[in-house]
Design a protein around this nucleic acid. Structure first.
Length: 511
RNA sequence: GCGGGUGUAGCUCAGUGGUAGAGCGUCACGUUGCCAACGUGAAUGUCGUCGGUUCGAAUCCGAUCACCCGCUCCA
């Protein structure tokens, strides 16, 4: 019997077993930051390595079965601030917001419009949300009531003031308010983390930013990679690394944190082939998440509606998200990876802002162009969260009900070896087996051993850590050179020759 | 940023003004010898933090921080 998964139980297990700790907790914590413990670090490294192996070292074959070329990159977290001006992040990550003290609603300042009768701009104004018909009609009706006459659309003027001052706001009635003067002045929301470069840096003159995404590091190195690695379009550049966003509300464990890790690949291709590559990567990425264990009903692909497309994707063939049904989004889904056609937006912007030519010359086509980009951008920390959620299982019929059913490739502990009793030659045999397994599998994850306490307790600990196989040395081992293997998921045991342990693991772990 | 909730041992939680608690986990010893077993013992807390009221505060009040839920936000 399995029960519904609870986020609380998972968070508690993660702390108890050393997957994820609240950051700087001994000082009271810090909202939006998390530390990864011994098991969590290994799990995250395994997930990252799996992505790197399947993306850069052994990429899939293309739609026509052709080999694909993807190279790696590790760019600096802090770049020249002009990078973020070119990419649109300085403007786009700075939306000034207006709050309504009365209705508690919050509006983007650039989306508010102000209504007054034609030629009578000095009196009371009524705000509405641009593009929201209901909101407009409400403002029109209230304005009509206020001036005590019927107003049609031809009788009013609409003001578009991105940064309204206090005087104007004082005589404005908010979109959801009944009295004037309830709107606050616009306050900037800075989603980028500012910092200072230089030990004696002046704040304004030396201001730089921690990157809000890894993608731009790839675009600004596009020319370097083209010039130094003999790649030809179509090809990809992949990067894994930390990104930083001053989220308004960090929430839901490690799902939205202010410091997070991304795995992004920018696939550069001919504009005419964008659709084909978009569909290829979209399907490829969904299949990849399945291949590392997200095999259930909780993984899906969702094509974006046209009105939710980001600034660079409007002209493209689309955006699709790989989504996971996290316990806190249930029954809805939350984003895990976005696959977007970024068109040539980024290269074009960097070409304009830097003055450097970023076009390629295509020998086969005899054509010069800016490549289009298909971007599969996954959250490593979100991926880890999905993997944790998927793995977490409660089985009340077992003496140790909590089990982390990690895919063997991701499991932080690959195997454990126990002497059934801590005497009679068993610890020595177990220790020798541990050394053999470390030599063979140690580079993929931990090989644990434990001689203390009852065997059931040791099995239970390994279940919570998600170790797929436990080998136990017992009295028989001394006589006939066999050990028992216990399977994490079934609890079933079989006896195999101690000589066969490596080949058994190799086969079961796929390593 | 707003509203609601929560904060006591590693985890789950009890404790409504008068000596800081339980279960589980952890550790040690013994026993047992394949599923959180049994026995004995041990360690672990500025009761989130700071301030106030009080003879006395985990408990009442205020502020603050963190987490959870709902808004809002989320290239």
């Amino acid at each position: 019997m399995t029960q519904a998964k609870s986020m609380e139980d998972l968070v508690s297990l993660c702390k108890r077993r050393g997957f994820v700790y609240p950051a700087s907790e001994i000082y009271g914590g810090l909202n939006g930051f998390w530390d990864y413990g011994p098991l969590g670090t290994q799990l995250k490294n395994n997930l990252r390595d799996a992505w790197w192996q399947d993306m850069v070292l052994c990429p899939p074959t293309g739609p026509g079965g052709q080999p694909l070329q993807i190279v790696g990159l590790d760019s600096a977290i802090i770049q020249n601030p002009r990078v973020w001006e070119a990419s649109g992040h300085v403007a786009g990550f700075n939306d000034p917001m207006i709050d309504c003290r009365q209705s508690k609603a919050r509006y983007r300042a650039d989306q508010l419009r102000y209504l007054h009768p034609t030629g009578e701009g000095e009196g009371r104004l009524f705000a509405f949300i641009e593009g929201d018909e209901k909101s407009f009609e409400r403002a029109l009706k209230l304005l009509g009531k206020y001036v005590k006459r019927d107003l049609g659309r031809g009788d009013v003027e609409i003001l578009d003031i991105p940064e309204p001052d206090a005087e104007l706001l004082a005589r404005t009635v908010g979109p959801d308010a009944t009295e004037p003067g309830t709107l606050t002045e616009p306050r900037p929301f800075n989603l980028m983390f500012p910092t200072i470069v230089g030990a004696t840096g002046d704040w304004e003159e030396n201001k730089a930013y921690l990157r809000p995404e890894t993608a731009q590091g790839i675009f600004i190195n596009f020319k370097h990679v083209m010039d130094t690695t003999r790649v030809k379009v179509p090809f990809g550049i992949a990067q894994v690394g930390k990104s930083f966003r001053n989220e308004v509300t960090p929430r839901n464990f490690i799902f939205r944190s202010r410091e997070f890790e991304q795995m992004e690949m920018e696939w550069f291709c001919h504009p005419g082939e964008a659709r084909e590559w978009f569909e290829f990567w979209r399907d490829q990425r969904l299949a990849w998440w399945k291949s590392i264990g997200l095999t259930g009903e909780d993984l899906r692909l969702r094509q974006h509606e046209s009105d939710e497309l980001s600034h660079y994707a409007k002209e493209g063939v689309g955006t699709a998200d790989v989504e996971y049904r996290y316990p806190f989004t249930h029954p809805d889904f939350g984003e895990l990876e976005g696959v977007a056609h970024r068109t040539d937006f980024d290269l074009r912007m960097h070409q304009e802002h830097s003055g450097q030519k970023l076009e390629v010359f295509d020998q086969e086509r005899r054509e010069r162009y800016l490549p289009h980009v298909i971007e599969p951008a996954a959250g490593l920390t979100r991926g880890m969260l999905a993997v944790l959620c998927e793995a977490y299982t409660r089985d009340e019929s077992r003496p140790s009900p909590e089990i982390m059913r990690f895919h063997p490739r991701l499991a932080p502990i690959k195997a454990a070896v126990f002497p059934l009793v801590n005497k009679e030659g068993m610890p020595e045999i177990a220790e020798r087996l541990v050394q053999r397994l470390r030599a063979r599998f140690g580079r993929f994850g931990m090989i644990e051993t434990d001689a203390k306490q009852s065997i059931g307790k040791r099995y239970a600990r390994m279940d919570e850590a998600g170790c797929p196989f436990c080998f136990t040395v017992d009295g028989e081992t001394v006589k006939d050179q066999t050990v028992t293997v216990r399977d994490r998921d079934t609890g079933a045991q079989e006896r195999i020759a101690i000589e066969r342990v490596e080949s058994f693991l190799s086969e079961r772990l796929g390593l």
